[in-house]
Design a protein around this nucleic acid. Sequence first.
DNA 1: GCGACAG
DNA 2: ATCTTGTCGC
Length: 343
Amino acid sequence: MARKAAGRPQEETLSLWKREQALLKTLVVDRDTEAWQRDLAFSGLQRVGGVDVSFVKGDSVSACASLVVLSYPELEVMYEDCRMVSLTAPYVSGFLAFREVPFLVDAVQQLREKEPRLMPQVLFVDGNGVLHHRGFGVACHLGVLTDLPCIGVAKKLLQVDGLENNALHKEKIRLLKGGGDSFPLMGGSGTVLGMALKSHDHSTKPLYVSVGHKMSLEAAVRLTHGCCKFRIPEPVRQADIRSRDYIRRTLGVQGAPALRPERSKKAQRPKACPQGASEEPAEDGKVCAPPPSSSPPPGWAGPPALLATHGLQSSVPWLGRAEQRQRPSSWGPQPAPPPGPRA
DNA sequence: GCGACAG
DNA sequence: ATCTTGTCGC
């Protein structure tokens, strides 16, 4: 039943994915768009989110996608959502978003519908933003589709555009003094694609931070440092820990290494965690900062419309209209895309 | 054959 | 991403 999401996609699929990335890339905003991002203490920032996808050992399709929201600056978990999913796309370097982003968008969408007040004001994404083969990594992709500020945080340097994890690079890392120290990662064209950040005093390996969406690199690096109790930013670390625990709990009992659809109905219940003593009626204009973030200009139909203009259909869902969210897998043994400028 | 390879 | 226990150190 569960098709394998293994093997390399056909060259034509990769070509379509590249076009999709190129189009959506035009929607990326690499500057600060929110007031709190420019404040030295991030005043106004109250909720930071993190996403991650963990995998089942011997299974190439089963995984757990998680979205967590933590309070800032306390960094305490106030919302957690873990769900088992069946991956449809294989992992291909440079196309990570097509494998993981559909489920993350779904998680954000569900939060937006059921607990809008817990919507994070920024999302930390496990992977790169503009530090990418074509300048559009998973953090940009998720940012554009959710319209949320996003920060790309990778644990390893993606060697693109002239960037190399060579002796010189390693030496620069060695020269980082304490937590918060960083150095720019300049691509061949002289553009700064990201920053290598020593996330805390006793960390040897740096973090590779890059802009995802709606935030400047400077603010992204500063906030990343501000969210690190350990090497990995707490939002992503919690998403990782909890998604792995979820897999252990789901597979631990009943032994068999198989997915269990019957039980998933009851198991995938997101939960809002009580925060300190804030269980209030909460009317709209309370202590909280203004709703999520700005919306696209009126008349703007969103990413799907842009793609349609160019004869493409979204490979991942979008949070606009329900009818847009149909079959996420359009790259399988499907007929043919709508008439358009194909090779 | 060799090197690269976010997660 | 995952494979993997104990061990050394603060």
